[in-house]
Design a protein around this nucleic acid. Structure first.
Length: 474
RNA sequence: GGCGACAUAGCCAAGUGGUAAGGCAGAGGACUGCAAAUCCUUUAUCCCCGGUUCGAAUCCGGGUGUCGCCUCCA
């Protein structure tokens, strides 16, 4: 095992060593369920789903938790605007989240707890912080006293006095110091509330993640991940609350995904350029969206535009063609191969190595994808050298893509449909026409099949057919 | 103002000391009745200026530019 990952906490790549291998405890900050998720959210969920898959692939047993924030200011505001209860709003957008991420081929975390279903552990955690002198009661709310937590600012690498320079206490706020933040908010008229030792109220935003992460994964977890914008204050505050309560490190590795911009501009409601996953999935194949996102390193900023998606789609198509052609080639394969195999076998070994090295290096998906392409080129060369092909070799090539596609899920690895009598008959007719150099008839048959979604390709070894949608852009 | 990231071909994007992966697009060629697919060839003073080194895209210093965080935000 030689997996390295970039830890925001130390700002360097570190050897990954989980606390209790093969177990890896993994917490990802999930959505606030007040709206549809957008393409920027999608990047985060796709990336960390892939991280989980890769860890599993490397032999770890990953326990992944991702929360739903189903109570906070935004939830309350939106529910009020729409005339629903907060719970109704949450149910609706949790369903939407599940549908949208499924559409993106993201696999759900092992556990997806809701904040409102964990009020009791949250209260216990706040109690502990009060006992330790890290929290205080003020005007119906409970606040965390950031100044009393020595390591505050360590994750975002800001000294507390520098953070203070940009912060202030708004008039009407009840906290004592600018960096303090609410752990519990006293009930206001018309807001959902739960009983607590401090009266009715609701949890603050940061405390839910601390609570749920430790509740399900233990006081020190291996990996904590989220979008880069969560570094401060959310993750900083999570550390303060968790370590403050336990005296132990909270998370050992912090992973943060870079931003996704829209046509070189930050995506924001005010610019009106928020692209929802729901909308994009109507227009694009999810594999194209995934391929696009995975074609850059997860920590780099990534720019989204239709042009760039088209570029990615064109590249992905090449790989899809190759995999489809491997299946086609199996029809003309046997024990004895006509073509020399040394070159392709060398390429296969190199691709395996390259893929693993790239992924082990802080999940370098762009490098890993290059391995897909390099092997495809060599594979195509092999296929051109003439059948019969070595069946076992073709299977090995297919396995290469099948196994890694379990991680990336950017290709359709599927057996072609069984031979269609009608199609075969049409192809035979066309062959006959071509032999007679009756190009008009031959082209008519090809066009006819095309309309039915069947694409014909003439190769030196005969005519090959496949479904048009196999490689088309949705 | 404080903290930080990034700057590689027309476009996207790897590469952290040994003279530049991969993809898209373009051009030319091979194959082909045509088409499709595929293969081959072709395109980089690695933002600028210094420094360290036998050797730097890679390390150090200084510029310039872009972006982000410091406030809800994936």
């Amino acid at each position: 095992m030689n997996l390295k990952l970039y830890n925001t906490l130390t700002r360097r790549k570190e050897q990954f060593e989980p606390l209790a291998p093969p177990l890896v405890t993994f917490y990802v900050c999930g959505p606030t369920v007040y709206d549809y998720i957008h393409i920027g959210n999608a990047r985060v969920f796709i990336i960390f789903d892939l991280v989980r898959r890769y860890l599993n692939y490397r032999g770890y047993r990953v326990r992944m938790v991702q929360n739903y924030t189903d109570i906070d200011d935004k939830m309350i505001r939106r529910a009020r605007e729409e005339g629903h209860t907060v719970a109704e709003l949450a149910d609706r957008f949790i369903d939407a989240y599940k549908a949208d991420t499924a559409g993106l081929l993201v696999r759900p975390a092992d556990l997806q707890p809701r904040a409102t279903e964990h009020i009791e552990p949250i209260i216990q955690l706040i109690k502990k912080l009060k006992e330790r002198g890290l929290a205080y009661f003020s005007g119906g709310d409970i606040y965390f006293s950031a100044g009393n937590f020595r390591d505050y600012g360590r994750l975002s690498h800001q000294a507390t006095d520098e953070l203070l320079a940009g912060a202030r206490v708004e008039p009407g706020e009840k906290k004592r110091e600018p960096l303090d933040f609410a752990l519990w908010k006293g009930k206001k008229e018309g807001e959902p509330a739960w009983d607590s030792p401090w009266g009715e109220g609701r949890p603050g935003w940061h405390i839910e993640c601390s609570s749920m992460a430790m509740h399900y994964l233990g006081e020190t977890i291996d990996i904590h991940a989220g979008g880069a914008d969560l570094i401060f204050p959310h993750h900083e505050n999570e550390i303060a609350q968790s370590s403050g309560a336990t005296g132990k490190p909270f998370a050992r590795y912090w992973l943060h995904a870079g931003y996704l911009n829209i046509e070189d501009r930050k995506m924001s409601k005010s610019l009106g350029n928020v692209l929802t996953v729901r909308h994009l999935l109507k227009e694009y194949d999810p594999r194209d969206l995934r391929f696009f996102i995975l074609s850059a390193h997860y920590r780099s900023p990534l720019n989204f535009s239709r042009e760039l998606i088209a570029q990615a789609a064109a590249g992905r198509k090449r790989l899809q063609e190759f995999v489809d052609n491997l299946y086609g080639a199996l029809a003309g394969s046997g024990e004895e191969a006509a073509a020399p195999e040394e070159q392709i076998r060398t390429a296969l070994a190199a691709a395996r190595r390259r893929f693993s090295e790239a992924m082990d290096d802080d999940f370098n998906t762009a490098g890993a994808i290059a391995a897909f392409f390099e092997l495809a080129r060599e594979g195509n060369i092999y296929l051109q050298k003439g059948h019969p092909y070595n069946r076992a070799l073709l299977e090995e090539l297919l396995d290469f893509y099948r196994e890694r596609n379990e991680l990336f899920e950017v290709l359709k690895i599927r057996q072609p449909a069984p031979p269609d009598e009608e199609v075969l008959r049409a192809i035979a007719q066309r062959e006959e026409a071509r032999r007679k150099k009756d190009w008009e008839a031959a082209d008519r048959i090809r066009d006819e099949l095309q309309k039915q979604g069947i694409v014909l390709e003439d190769t030196p070894h005969g005519t090959r057919w496949k479904y048009g949608e196999a490689t088309g852009i949705k």
